[in-house]
Design a binder for these strands. Sequence first.
DNA 1: TATTTTATTTAGATTTGTCTAAACATTTTT
DNA 2: AAAAATGTTTAGACAAATCTAAATAAAATA
Lengths: 219, 219
Amino acid sequence: MESQTEENYLKIIYHLSRLSAGPVQTNAIADRTQTKPASVSDMVKKLAEKQLVNYVKYQGVTLTEKGQVTAVNIVRKHRLWEVFLVDTLNFKWDEVHEIAEELEHVNSNLLVERLDRFLGYPKHDPHGDPIPDKEGNIEEASVIKLNKLLPSEKGIIVGVSEHSSAFLKYLEKTKLTLGTSLQLIEITEFDGSVDLILDGKKINISREVAKHLLMKPAL
Amino acid sequence: MESQTEENYLKIIYHLSRLSAGPVQTNAIADRTQTKPASVSDMVKKLAEKQLVNYVKYQGVTLTEKGQVTAVNIVRKHRLWEVFLVDTLNFKWDEVHEIAEELEHVNSNLLVERLDRFLGYPKHDPHGDPIPDKEGNIEEASVIKLNKLLPSEKGIIVGVSEHSSAFLKYLEKTKLTLGTSLQLIEITEFDGSVDLILDGKKINISREVAKHLLMKPAL
DNA sequence: TATTTTATTTAGATTTGTCTAAACATTTTT
DNA sequence: AAAAATGTTTAGACAAATCTAAATAAAATA
């Protein structure tokens, strides 16, 4: 059994290793865990002893098969709980992340399976992230960032890659919610901000926002 | 904020102080927490520093007002989650205690209130225990143990005072579930076992079982 | 390539919650 | 009321997860 802390490390290593290829750096983990690099070194050594990560000094870490399974299972729980909070308890999508961070550590396979069934085996969480199935399979997202669309291209918002309440509230206010169709006009060269048509109206969003909107291109 | 461990101590002190009057003994807490008396001494000192308990060396502990509020809130969460598990996720009443022990430590008032509303503001958990309201008020149970009924007296099972899976499974099998009516015939002097009429049939249950069945007497 | 900068690890401490063994207090028994 | 039994606390130690400061390795730069 892994401690809550170990589970959090595994989850963060999992997420970081999807962001870029190659092993995950100590400092990157320290940033995400709100700890110091020295603490990460210690913990990573411990995870390596438990065969959850491969670790070579100064080279960073990768998840072992066992670590991967554990991490994906935590992600699965996190996302299922988020669906529960939004669909069943009527939370808003910007309110659920922190609560799901706690719920994901509750340890009962039976609970997860019953919850999954109750929710109707959802495929995506409220932010559009895919929910791994019981076996750990995840639908590979074939999405592109909004700022990678071409001028005049249309698309549907299917996910976000930033989960902070501040960001999600902004999207809510701007009507940039999941399932929304839009058309890109152009990307401003100077600041990377994006002009687009939403609901017939022309609006402008910053590059910061655009790069966290995941799109399914439409004709 | 209290740690999960501190919360568990408070909860146990709360339950023990309902079982008998006067301060709660160190050894009693040690039994329930699966720790040693020495560890309890340490923790109790810490809780006293945080003004959660009143503690006099060698005399045991009582909850302060603040400690009481904290403990009742944990009990409230525990019982609400049990209702959720049974009513919403179709768990059996003997499967929910351990899972609720984990869920009760999830820290979000909003979550508790939304859950309460979703469940329809239940008054009792699946074992018949009263659920404290948001302000911490608990319906005072006016129930008596089955082995305190008088010969020929009738009653309805409204709760249990033992939550182990083994006990609850036995009740399930014997059809001694909540809401069931029965009539006491007599209590055997030798071993305290109880003869009673259930569903028109005469059965016998041990004293151990009888004392954990909470009854509302009926005419 | 030598030097500087950045990233990482080690060494030694700290906090939390636990333990064992020994000391001490209280209660019960004789 | 003294002795025995029971209950409780203290002292000292340990594992987990963290920290700071110092040392070391790797990468970037001149």
